[in-house]
Amino acid sequence: SPEVQIAILTEQINNLNEHLRVHKKDHHSRRGLLKMVGKRRRLLAYLRNKDVARYREIVEKLG
C-alpha cells in the first residue's frame, strides 16, 4: 500500500540524513536521497488525489 511505502521511504530518508551529517562529501548517497524524496513526494501526491483521509492520517503519523 502507498502508506507502507511512504513509511519505509521516510525511515530510509531519516537514516540517510544522519549518514550525510557525518559524511558531508558523500554525493553518491545524496543523489540517492534526492531520488527517495522525489519518490515519496509522488506517492504522497497519489494518495492525496485518491483518498484525502488516508493522506491526512499518514502525514499526521509521520510528521
Rank of each mutant, 00 (worst) to 15 (best):
P2K: 06
R40T: 02
L43T: 00
R42P: 00
N17F: 15
R40K: 03
N49V: 14
H27G: 07
H28P: 06
L44P: 00
L47M: 04
M36P: 00
Q5C: 10
L43K: 01
E11Q: 11
S1P: 09
L20M: 06
L9V: 02
R21K: 12
Q5V: 10
E57I: 06
N49G: 08
K61G: 08
A53S: 10
L44K: 00
N17D: 05
N15Q: 13
D51H: 04
R40Y: 05
S29A: 14
Y46T: 09
H28L: 10
R41S: 09
L43N: 00
K39G: 02
R48N: 02
T10Y: 03
N14V: 06
H19S: 04
S1D: 12
K50R: 10
R48D: 00
N49D: 10
R41T: 07
D26H: 11
R21H: 05
H23S: 05
Q12E: 06
R54T: 06
L33E: 01
E11C: 13
N49Y: 09
D51I: 04
R54M: 09
N49I: 14
G38W: 14
R42K: 12
D51P: 00
L44Q: 00
V52Y: 15
R48P: 00
V22S: 12
L9A: 01
A7L: 15
R54N: 03
N14A: 07
V4E: 14
V22C: 14
P2Y: 14
E11H: 08
K25D: 14
I13A: 00
I6P: 00
I8D: 05
A53Y: 07
L16F: 06
L62S: 02
A45F: 06
K35V: 12
Q5K: 06
A53T: 11
I8S: 06
G38N: 13
D26T: 05
E57H: 05
N17C: 15
L47K: 00
N15F: 13
Y55E: 01
A53K: 13
Y46F: 09
V52F: 15
V22P: 03
H28F: 08
R40C: 07
E57D: 08
Q12F: 09
K24R: 10
I8K: 11
K50P: 01
I6F: 03
L16I: 07
K35Q: 11
R30P: 03
D51N: 08
R30I: 12
L43C: 03
V4D: 14
K50Y: 14
M36Y: 06
D51T: 01
L34F: 09
S1V: 06
L43A: 02
L33M: 08
D26K: 07
K50W: 09
M36A: 12
R56A: 07
E18P: 01
G63M: 15
L44I: 03
V37E: 07
K35P: 01
Q12L: 14
T10L: 05
A45G: 07
V59A: 04
K61C: 09
L16V: 04
Y55C: 03
N15E: 12
H23L: 03
G32D: 14
L34S: 07
Q12N: 06
A45S: 08
N14L: 09
I13E: 00
L20I: 08
R54W: 04
N17S: 13
H27V: 09
I13F: 02
L47S: 00
V4Q: 12
G38D: 12
I6T: 01
R42Y: 08
H27L: 09
R21G: 04
L62V: 04
N17I: 15
R48W: 09
K50T: 15
V59D: 00
V4T: 09
N15I: 13
S29V: 12
G63H: 14
I58V: 09
G32P: 04
E18A: 11
V37L: 14
A45H: 09
G63P: 05
L43E: 01
I8G: 03
E60W: 05
R42H: 05
R21Q: 07
G38Q: 13
I58S: 03
V37I: 14
L20K: 02
M36D: 01
D26L: 04
R21N: 06
S1L: 07
N14E: 06
R56W: 15
L16G: 01
I58A: 04
P2R: 05
P2N: 03
H27W: 12
N49M: 13
Q5D: 07
V37S: 02
A7K: 07
L20Y: 04
M36H: 03
L62Y: 06
D51A: 03
L34P: 01
N15G: 08
E3G: 03
S1A: 08
V22L: 13
Q5S: 06
I13H: 01
S1H: 09
D51E: 04
R42D: 05
L44A: 00
H19A: 05
K25Q: 11
R56K: 11
R30E: 04
D26V: 03
Y55F: 08
Q12H: 12
G63V: 14
R30K: 08
L34I: 11
P2I: 15
L62C: 06
Q5L: 15
L9C: 03
K35I: 13
V52A: 12
V52I: 14
H19F: 09
K39A: 11
M36N: 02
V59S: 03
N49L: 14
Y46M: 12
L44M: 05
R48S: 03
Y55T: 01
V59F: 05
N17T: 14
R42L: 09
N15V: 12
K39W: 08
L47G: 00
K39C: 11
E11P: 01
